[in-house]
Amino acid sequence: MTMSATVKEYFAALERLKQNKPQVIEKGSPINKDTVALEAGRKRGSIRNRPGFEPLLEAIDQAGAQPRPEAKKRVAVNPKQTAEIELLKRDLDVARSRYMSLLYLNAEMAKTIRRLGGDVPRFGGVTDISIDPKSTDVPF
């Protein structure tokens, strides 16, 4: 007996669920008739005890009874990598502090220029900046 296109779609959805690579539903969902139907793009409850669905129902029951493979968890922590991450976090904090200090300094200088009667450009997008790649005063 040949399988209909719908049953083939259900089997394809069942295989994706077995491999824990669903495209429609959440990963790690239990394997049952409803999740297979939803993964196949059908409505919940569309898989029923009908003629032609027997092999599918049997495969769903077998897949649902088998334990799901656990995701591999990180066993050991690499101390070198952990130290590198901490160093990068400290560098990020320093960069953020410096950025905030420079913003404050710019705002204070703008106030002083306005008080002295000068024209201060609006803060916003930066334009007309060119950096000489041979310059030694660039911090990076």
Rank of each mutant, 00 (worst) to 15 (best):
K8H: 04
A83T: 11
P133D: 06
R122T: 15
G28Y: 00
E108R: 15
K8V: 02
L116S: 11
E9Y: 00
L17G: 05
P121R: 14
R122F: 13
L102W: 08
I85V: 14
L116A: 13
V120T: 12
G124N: 09
I60G: 01
Q66W: 00
T6F: 00
Q23W: 01
V138I: 12
L105P: 02
I47M: 01
N78K: 02
T112V: 14
A76D: 03
V7H: 04
A65Y: 02
L103P: 04
K43W: 07
L116Y: 07
R114E: 11
L105R: 14
V77F: 00
L38T: 11
G28K: 03
T2A: 13
T82S: 11
P133G: 07
G117T: 08
M1V: 11
R42Q: 14
M1P: 07
K73T: 15
R68F: 02
A63S: 04
N49Y: 02
V36T: 04
K80A: 11
R90I: 15
D137W: 05
S130E: 08
N20T: 04
R50W: 05
N106G: 14
D91R: 15
A76W: 01
S97V: 11
L102D: 09
A59L: 00
E86H: 14
Y99S: 15
A40F: 01
R50L: 13
Q62H: 02
A37D: 04
E9W: 01
I113M: 10
T136S: 13
K43Y: 12
K72P: 07
V77R: 06
R114D: 04
I113L: 12
A95Y: 05
A40H: 03
T127L: 11
D132S: 07
K43M: 15
R68Q: 05
V24G: 07
I31S: 06
N106Y: 10
E9S: 12
A83P: 05
V120W: 06
L17K: 06
A59G: 01
Q19L: 13
G125A: 14
I129W: 01
V120A: 10
A83V: 12
T2Y: 05
L102P: 04
F140D: 08
R68S: 05
Y10V: 01
R42F: 12
E54R: 13
D61S: 11
G45W: 03
A12H: 03
D132N: 13
Q23A: 12
Q23K: 12
N106D: 14
P79V: 06
R122Y: 13
E26S: 15
S29D: 03
I85N: 08
D91Y: 10
K27M: 09
